[in-house]
């Protein structure tokens, strides 16, 4: 499901216009990012939680030139699914 389909599904479920849905969706994303960038983890009950994890700096080697370089420390957004949702998903058959 891509962004467009998500919007359509949301609009039809909520009974509001698509432009309104888009606005709300954007607001949700903005709110999420705002909270996350304040180093707060956001947990959505029954689905999972989003949190910002700090990644240490690390050494990399360019396989062609054998050159070593340091990747600086950074932050990354991570998602951890809740146990409830994990169990739901677990039994799904393998999909090719």
């Amino acid at each position: 499901m891509n962004n467009k389909e998500l919007q359509v599904a949301l609009a039809s479920k909520l009974g509001i216009s698509q432009s309104e849905t888009e606005e709300l969706l954007q607001a949700t994303i903005n709110a999420l990012i705002e909270k996350l960038s304040e180093n707060k983890s956001v947990s959505i009950h029954g689905f999972g939680s989003f949190e910002v994890r700090e990644k240490n700096e690390r050494l990399t080697v360019n396989p062609l030139t054998k050159e070593r370089s340091i990747v600086p420390a950074k932050k990354a957004l991570a998602f951890k699914s809740s146990t409830v949702y994990k169990e739901k998903i677990k039994e799904l058959p393998r999909y090719e």
């Binding site: 891509n2 962004n3 998500l6 599904a9 949301l10 954007q26 994303i29 949702y85 998903i89």
Partner: peptide, 26 residues
């Protein structure tokens, strides 16, 4: 209301489609 539906739809769509793309988020 929106957030709840948003969550429900993502959960559902994920099981059905196995992929959900949200522009600007992930």
């Amino acid at each position: 209301d929106f957030l709840k539906n948003f969550q429900a739809i993502i959960e559902e769509a994920l099981i059905n489609d196995r992929i959900v793309k949200i522009k600007g988020f992930g």
